[in-house]
């Protein structure tokens, strides 16, 4: 899709941050949530007035892995599942850079599962956006570690029989110090969660529920992208003191908002700076 010039002129931030001349049309299906994630991320970065030269976007393989290529900053499209390892090297080498990582659910939690938990454990200051559409979209709809039980995929044609991961719970228990969830329906909220993640010093995980109507929706008769996004609207609840989380979970609702934040744990690069300052003395 070619960005609508009229829209671009209305949103100078998006225009400023996109590689408008070089990289469009993009490769996502019409109605894909990845574009919403991209624009939310850009608006979050722009609102924080970051210098484009100081922003690094790293991604793995898959539909979400193509997000950075459209952004006019330092962008790195790596191997499947390994984005966090490259990001770790970049952040340690130049701690002043703002390093964002974009991954899909298969990328982050299947092939990259080990890197995911270890990056969270280290509490290295990365802002990690996992776009969760419950499926491998780019390869045509295979079952992923977040495909819910009994849902169908081309490699689970009788229904998924494996228990899915909850990316947020996994990150939190592995040691992430900022964990948030949003959906592509909640555009402003998504932007807000990414902004809060960027502002947080430490490993930040933002799971964004997205739609893959082309594969997942079609195979599971969930309707088109509009129907799927409406489903997100109707099945989401915001976290807060009033929310009965257990009840919401039992009803299959998406719990959105900042699910966990711990500002007491020191960040890895800061700890390393301390060692560097001491000149390696014990």
């Amino acid at each position: 899709m070619v960005p609508n010039q009229q829209l671009l002129s209305k949103s100078p931030a998006v225009h400023n941050w996109l590689r408008v001349k070089k990289k469009f049309p993009h490769l996502w299906c019409p109605g894909c949530g990845d574009g919403i994630v991209l624009s939310s991320a850009i608006l979050a970065l722009d609102s924080l007035e970051y210098d484009k030269n100081d922003v690094v976007m790293v991604s793995g393989i898959g539909c979400a892995g193509r997000i950075p290529v459209y952004v006019d900053c330092n962008t790195l499209h790596t191997t499947h599942g390994r984005a966090l390892t490259f990001a770790t090297g970049i952040k340690l080498a130049k701690p002043h850079l703002k390093v964002m990582v974009f991954m899909g659910d298969g990328d982050a939690l299947a092939i990259g599962g080990n890197h995911y938990i270890h990056a969270a454990r280290r509490n290295i200051d990365l802002t990690v956006v996992v776009v969760n559409n419950n499926i491998y979209g780019m390869t045509g709809g295979q079952v992923s570690p977040t495909t819910p039980l009994s849902m169908k995929a081309t490699t689970a044609i009788y229904g998924c029989i494996e228990q899915p991961f909850d990316p947020c719970e996994l990150a939190r228990s592995a040691g992430a110090t900022f964990v948030a969830r949003s959906t592509v329906y909640h555009v402003r909220h998504t932007e807000d969660m990414i902004r809060k993640g960027l502002e947080h010093k430490g490993f930040s995980l933002i799971e964004i529920i997205s739609n893959c109507h082309t594969s997942y929706g079609r195979m599971n008769k969930l309707g088109d992208h509009i129907t799927m996004i409406k489903h997100m609207r109707d099945n989401s609840v915001m976290i807060g003191p009033q929310l009965d989380q257990e009840k919401a979970q039992a009803e299959g609702k998406y719990i959105l908002g900042v699910l966990h934040q711990d500002t007491s744990r020191p960040e890895l690069c800061e700890l390393y700076e301390e060692i560097n300052k001491r000149g390696g003395t014990q």
Binding site: V58, L76, T79, F86, T88, G89, I90, H115
Partner: peptide, 10 residues
């Protein structure tokens, strides 16, 4: 992966 990342950063 980390080595390549650090090298990309200089």
């Amino acid at each position: 992966g980390a080595v390549i990342g650090a090298s990309i950063a200089g």
